[in-house]
Design a protein around this nucleic acid. Structure first.
Lengths: 213, 213
DNA sequence: TGACTTTCGTTTATCGATAATTTATTCTTG
DNA sequence: CAAGAATAAATTATCGATAAACGAAAGTCA
């Protein structure tokens, strides 16, 4: 088996990203080029390029001659994401209602998975399926630019988990998605869009409340 | 005077970006690393990193072992930008109405500049001021995430000029911005948002019409 | 003592050269 | 003459080494 089907840069980038998303590297942790290069048995160059890409994606921040660190998402930034999410997901839902043509099986499955995770008390898994639900709608809308923008918001379970923690009963959280699904099933884009927007804005409010606590 | 206050990477990136935006490099043009390095008297490394950044910003696209090219914006992509713009600029205008507190002098100036450009028959300048008008609103909204997303859409005069060309009388185009300005002056965020959304959607329709032509 | 300078170790930024890959060209071979 | 293999040319990807910049620690002088 070849370990080098893709470019080193690509491979290193993916490994680093996994580590960031899984919390192996914590926000603020330094990412030292030569150290990483040594670990992977490569030279500094592909590591540098990986870090640059991760920086452009917003997962890492770096200062000239002072290196790269895992970027921390501030509470304020998290709060600022929600109005943008709400606006573009509304657009996505409108378009998705048409393109799905009532085929909401995948969305059903995510809601079911949320309930199972709720039964297991696995909040992380639940938030993952929550994100997946939203992503399915975004992916169904057919607008690539919109999809790109949504991804650039880096809506990750790891970050969102703090929003719902202790605030909402898990099964209730899962059920909150059902009206949206039903509107999509019925092909009512206007309604689906409005509901999804309110849904996202609701969580935005939660973040704002959390800021004062 | 030092030519190297910033890193080479940064300098090269800016120069390349300028060339792309000013049309010196056309969409599809190849960007050959060693050739550019030679031109600037540097090695390949900083050029590579510049290209990676430009790729992340969406101005360049590259294929492994086949190099980088200036990215062409397809008509479809341009059309897909508008619904996203409309949605987030609506959000921006709502927030901007509050934060501007009636201070719309800069917006006035851009409309005036649009009229002057219309008098001069300088369509490029006019579209630049049009973009600037929208950017002022986005910048005024106070949501950094939203600003980042808006910038990532790469709303450039060079691309937009095709949308308005021959379709709209220049002075009329400038005047279309006035109701939005007045709503902002009055501090009516809801109205400003709705007007701006319609305004942007209107141009989205134009693009769609242009597709069939 | 305490502020300023100097030195030193660490890390990034850049370089020049080599390896790997693609594309175009030339050479077979039927 | 066409199809395919082999070769050559161009370019990217990676390497190993050096230069530049930073931060901390040690040293200096009032």
């Amino acid at each position: 088996m070849t370990l080098t089907r893709k470019s080193l840069r690509q491979q290193i980038k993916e490994i680093l990203l996994t580590r960031i998303l899984q919390g192996e590297y914590r926000p603020g942790d330094r990412l030292i080029e030569l150290q990483i290069a040594q670990e992977f048995g490569t030279s500094q160059a592909p590591v540098r390029e990986s870090l640059r890409e991760l920086e452009a994606l917003g997962f890492v921040e770096s200062v000239p001659y002072r290196g790269a660190r895992v970027r921390a998402v501030s509470q304020q930034e998290l709060a600022e994401v929600y109005p943008v999410r709400a606006a573009i997901e509304e657009v996505a839902a409108r378009a998705a209602a048409v393109r799905l043509a009532g085929d909401v099986g995948a969305l059903e499955a995510e809601i079911a998975a949320m309930h199972r995770a709720a039964d297991d008390g696995d909040l992380y898994a639940q938030v993952c399926h929550d994100v997946a639900f939203h992503r399915l709608i975004v992916d169904a809308c057919g607008n690539r630019v919109l999809q790109e923008v949504w991804r650039s918001l880096r809506i990750e379970a790891r970050t969102l988990i703090s929003v719902v923690k202790t605030e909402i009963e898990p099964h209730h959280l899962a059920d909150m998605h059902r009206p949206i699904l039903e509107a999509l099933r019925a092909g009512d884009g206007d309604l689906a869009g409005r509901l999804l927007r309110q849904h996202v804005e609701f969580f935005g409010e939660l973040v704002l409340k959390g800021e004062h606590a």
